[in-house]
Design a binder for these strands. Structure first.
Length: 217
DNA sequence: GCGTAGATCGTCT
DNA sequence: GACGATCTACGCT
């Protein structure tokens, strides 16, 4: 009988191997994540969501996000102050991770924003391979998590000072940002039409229907 | 390119 | 007991 040990985490896609430290990339200070959620949702465009696995670093370049505005947002899990065990990470200080499971099979990763007690977050919807390549690999929140090997086991983790889960600033290249309503929240009434989805107009990895991929704003 | 259906199970009512 | 902050396969145009 084997000795019980911590649950094994899935391996990231080898194509994502990239060392942000070797590339000299900087991280974000805590206060960055405490800003307004829409500001953060746009500012992390081009940033690298990175994970260490068996001693190597793997990363995804964020090119599509959505803002979820807490208690006043019918599309947010924290709508009307809901605070169930699943949603609790959304109430943590900015810079934490909130991961949940949708449709019984796909994980979705969010960066928690605002100070502790304010349940807002930025959903990471799509990303590019840092070294280039398959634009379809991470063109959707579930695929992004699958490629990086991120599961609900990581919900509540702190991205600052974390040994194997971090967020790095991009290389500073300007990103042209398009705006649209959020995807998959038709049940949210008026909030379903709020312009809270942001994406890199020039990226081939953007998710969603065609009419939500062309330039807006 | 577009629309539809089915998968699959944790979470909340 | 119903329903997802999704994805893929498949049929049709």
């Amino acid at each position: 009988m084997a000795i019980s040990r911590t649950k094994a985490q899935p391996a990231p896609d080898p194509r994502l191997e990239f060392d942000p430290f070797a590339a000299g990339l900087k991280e974000f200070p805590r206060d960055f994540f405490r800003q307004e959620t829409v500001i953060v949702a746009k500012a992390v465009m081009g940033a690298l969501f990175a994970r260490r696995y068996e001693g190597r670093w793997y990363a995804a370049r964020i090119i599509e996000t959505e803002a979820y505005l807490g208690s006043g947002d019918a599309a947010a899990h924290s709508w009307k102050g809901r605070k169930t065990p699943r949603v609790e990470p959304m109430y943590m200080d900015g810079g934490h991770l909130y991961v949940f499971l949708v449709y019984g099979m796909h994980s979705c990763a969010n960066i928690v924003t605002r100070p502790e007690g304010v349940a807002e977050a930025v959903l990471l919807r799509a990303a590019e391979v840092p070294s280039g390549g398959d634009a379809k690999l991470m063109s959707g929140p579930g695929k992004l998590c699958a490629a990086l090997g991120v599961t609900v086991a990581l919900t509540g983790a702190d991205l600052l000072g974390n040994e194997d889960l971090r967020l790095f600033q991009g290389d500073g290249r300007p990103v042209r940002i398009g705006t649209s309503k959020r995807i998959g929240v038709e049940y949210a009434g008026a909030a379903a039409d709020w312009p809270l989805r942001f994406y890199d107009i020039d990226s081939g990895a953007v998710s969603g229907p065609r009419h939500l991929r062309s330039s807006h704003r």
